[in-house]
Amino acid sequence: MFDVLHVSSAHPWTDVRVHQREAASAAAIGYRTGLIAVARQGERRDPHWTVPDEQTGVSVRRITRRPRLRRILVSSLQVITLALRTSAPVVHLHDPELLWAVPVLRLAGRKVVYDAHEDLPDQVRGKEYLRGGRRTAAIVLAHVLVRVACGSDRVIAATPVVARRFPARKTTVVRNLPRVRAHDLGTELARAPRAVYLGSHSRDRGLEALCAIADIPERTWELVTAGPVEHGGHRAAFDELVRAGAIDHRGVLHPTDARNLLLECRVGLLPLRPTPAYRTSIPTKLFEYMAAGLAVVATDVPFWRELLAGVDCVTWVPADDVTALAEAVGRYMDDPDLAVAHAGAGRDAVVETLRWEIDEPALLAVYADLLGGAPLDGLVAPPRS
């Protein structure tokens, strides 16, 4: 039925890395590609496989969204059962909660690829709600899961730092970089005085800072956001600012609509707090902002500065410094020529070195190795009944 099957019990089926980049790349060169992932809010699950997605050519099976505990206990078993019912020789897993299935899938004769999106032990260390014995147990479990992941046939790591956790001989770095759209390259860089934040809204992702700059009196520029908003924390304050019109929140958008929203804005915001996981991550939103032709205001993280060494496209501000964040945004609004210069430099850098098409061949080489050749070589097995 499939040559490559991507599986997630946590990510929505529209996830940019999982579907729009990795699965779509496999489908584009002829691999029969499937995806099991989570239905978005308000969507219904699929009782059967859908026809291939019109944009990507990937066949999708959506499962029900569940709360965290039920997701771990129910959804993880459900997606692995569905994967085993297919004849896909390569199963590409995307969640730590699915690592228990690595030996199961391998015993069933499947080649297993584990996609390490983040450094799991560092991610756990950054969870402030974990205390004492629970924190210690969670860190130990994270290291155990990394060891289990090492039993996969291949590991795809989102960053070189993540890759260090796994055996070099079976690990390939595939960075989470944006695709370059021809439409983006033809857009004007002189934009309306509008700042945008795109992505999950949470404390670690700077929700408190967004609320603070939205509440600035006599602000002369618009603040637009899109993405899911976590419960608790500053959710109530955020919702009140949305009701008051201080924040134009567009909700959860399809990836294409989200990319199009960026084209309406002048400045992209990345106020993430430097948690252990974020300090060594490659923030895909940073490069999506750059690809769309935005000047960027971002938390001053040394690793991110290193990624953009020699590219003058970002104003770096100290973590949790709302005043510095607001001043940086205001500078771009008051000086549109500076915004255009930084936007142009960022877009050029993405086109030259920081786009998905640079890393895509490394991913496809992994599939070709596991399947015995690329589909265009005629080496992939014919369709199965």
Rank of each mutant, 00 (worst) to 15 (best):
N260K: 12
N260S: 12
L261C: 05
L263G: 03
E264T: 15
E264P: 00
C265T: 02
R266W: 00
R266D: 00
L269F: 12
L269A: 10
L270I: 14
L270D: 04
P271K: 09
L272F: 13
L272T: 03
L272E: 13
R273W: 03
R273D: 04
R273T: 11
T275W: 09
T275E: 02
A277H: 07
A277W: 00
Y278R: 10
R279N: 03
T280Q: 11
S281H: 13
I282A: 04
P283W: 08
K285R: 12
L286N: 03
L286K: 04
L286C: 10
L286V: 10
F287L: 07
Y289C: 11
Y289F: 14
M290W: 01
A291V: 01
G293H: 05
G293V: 01
L294K: 06
A295R: 09
A295S: 14
V296N: 06
V296Q: 08
V297N: 06
A298Q: 10
A298E: 10
T299S: 15
D300S: 14
D300C: 08
V301L: 13
P302D: 07
F303I: 03
E306W: 10
L307E: 12
L307R: 14
L308E: 03
A309K: 09
G310F: 04
G310A: 05
V311C: 12
V311W: 11
D312Q: 13
C313I: 08
C313N: 02
V314R: 01
T315K: 02
T315R: 12
T315F: 01
T315V: 14
T315I: 11
T315G: 01
T315Q: 11
W316L: 10
W316N: 10
V317R: 01
V317I: 15
P318C: 06
A319G: 08
D320H: 11
D320P: 02
D321K: 10
D321S: 12
V322T: 15
A324V: 10
A326H: 15
A326G: 15
A328N: 07
V329Q: 05
G330Q: 04
G330M: 05
R331T: 13
Y332S: 05
D334C: 01
D334I: 00
D334Y: 00
D335C: 05
L338A: 15
L338N: 04
A339Y: 02
A339N: 06
A339E: 03
V340F: 02
V340H: 00
A341I: 02
A341K: 13
H342I: 06
A343Y: 06
A343H: 08
A343V: 04
A343S: 13
